[in-house]
Structure formats: C-alpha cells, structure tokens
C-alpha cells in the first residue's frame, strides 16, 4: 500500500522533472517517455521493490489512458470538417499502413528468429495498448509482453518519426499525422500535437482507425 502510493507520486514527480529538463534541453535522454521509466526501473531494482508493489499505485495512472482516449473526441470534434474532407486519404493510407505493420512485424520476427510467442506478441505492437493486448490474446501472444512492446514502439516511433518525416520530405500535415498515428499510436500522437493541432488530430484519428482495422481483421481471420 505504502509502496503503491509512493510509486504513484514518484512517477508524477520524475515525469515533471523530465518534462522540465526536456523543455530546457530537448534531447532524447530527457524525453519524459524515456527518462521517467528508466529512472523508475533503476529505483525499483535498486530498492528491491517488486513491480507489483509499485504498480499498485502506478495502475491508477495507467487507468487514466482510458479517459484520455475518450478526450480525443474534443480535437476530433474541432477538426471534423477538415477530417471529412480528407477522409478517403486517411482511411486508405491508415489501412495500408496497418497491413504493413502486421506483415513487417511477422516477417522481421521470423528473420531475426524471435521466439514464436514473442512474435505473436509483436504483431499488434503499433496499435494502442488496450486493443493491442486484446489482439495479442486472440492470436496467441502474451498480452503483458505486448503492452511493453507497444510502449517500446511508441517511444522509438516518437524519436525516429521526425527524422523520417524530414528524410522522406513529408510536408503534408495530413500525411504527417497519418505517419505518426499509424506507426506509433498515442506516443506518436503526442509528438504529432507538438508539430501542430491538425497533425495531432489526424494522428489520433489514424491511431484509432489503425486499432479498429487491426481488431476487425483479427476478429474475422481468427
């Protein structure tokens, strides 16, 4: 109980520190999604705390992902006319991107000789956590491993996303949003909102669409 409450507040505290550091010096190490978990892992291992004890408090923060997902309704509403105008562009590229995500995960995993169970856990890694865990369970992966892999994907995606955008010269705001939301779910969307409000909204739509498409296809196939 004490561990849980402490874990809850230390997480917020370290997150606020990371945010301030990142604002002061925007380098990868200070990115809140890297700095905070790494600092927490060291702290938990260093004090011989069980993850379960930490997570007794941490899970309440994780629960807030659900209301936050609902909150995407607000930017969706604000940008709806623009989204409607670009609906076909978004739907086509997100659907194609989701197919590429599933196929590339499976092929790369086979190529790298990753364990079968890990491979199935990797397949839904680019979609938002709750649905990814759902899909993982349906296809024979381990949902809790998937949750971690989804997070790594989000972290990596929000780091390499801006480089890929500039390398491939993606100048269209809609395309940038599609790229980040389809590949790196909520973390990518958070990065997309740094680029702009429209890019962020398109990214959140892409994230939701990618999750729905992947879930739908899995339900039909499995």
């Amino acid at each position: 109980m004490i561990g849980g409450i402490l874990g809850f507040f230390i997480t917020i505290f370290l997150y606020l520190i990371a945010k301030r550091l990142y604002r002061y010096k925007p380098i990868l190490l200070f990115s809140p999604l890297l700095f905070t978990p790494v600092a927490l892992v060291f702290l938990i291992l260093g004090t011989h705390t069980a993850y379960e004890a930490y997570n007794a408090g941490g899970k309440w923060l994780a629960y807030m992902l659900q209301p936050a997902t609902i909150a995407f309704a607000v930017p969706l509403y604000k940008h709806f006319p623009l989204l409607k105008k670009h609906a076909s562009q978004i739907v086509v590229s997100v659907t194609a991107g989701s197919a590429v995500a599933v196929v590339s995960s499976a092929l790369l995993a086979l190529l790298m000789h990753v364990d079968k169970q890990v491979m199935f856990s990797l397949i839904p890694r680019s979609i938002t956590t709750p649905i990814a865990m759902n899909v993982s369970e349906m296809i024979g992966g381990v949902p809790s491993i998937t949750a971690v892999l989804v997070l790594i994907t989000g972290l990596l995606g929000s780091v390499i996303g801006p480089y890929i955008i500039s390398y491939l010269r993606i100048q269209d705001d809609i395309a940038r949003g599609v790229l980040l939301g389809t590949s790196a779910h909520g973390a990518g969307t958070s990065k997309a909102f740094e680029i702009g409000s429209l890019t962020g909204t398109v990214s959140s739509i892409s994230m939701i669409l990618a999750a729905l498409v992947t879930q739908l296809v899995t339900t039909i196939v499995v």
Binding site: G7, T11, I12, Y15, P32, L33, T36, P37, L40, V41, I44, L45, Y51, Y54, N55, G58, K59, L61, A62, Y63, M64, L65, P67, A68, A71, F72, A73, V74, P75, T129, S144, I145, A147, V148, L151, I152, G154, L155, G186, A187, T189, S190, F193
Partner: peptide, 22 residues
Amino acid sequence: ASFLLAELLLFFIPPSVGIISY
C-alpha cells in the same frame, strides 16, 4: 480534454516500467 491529452505520456509510464518483469 486539453489537460488529459497534454499529459498523455505520463499515463504510459507505469505499464512501460513493466519491462522489469521480463
């Protein structure tokens, strides 16, 4: 809504610490 979306990354942190179980 603006608050929840601005602090979205915070909510990702506890599950990502789950990596220590693996």
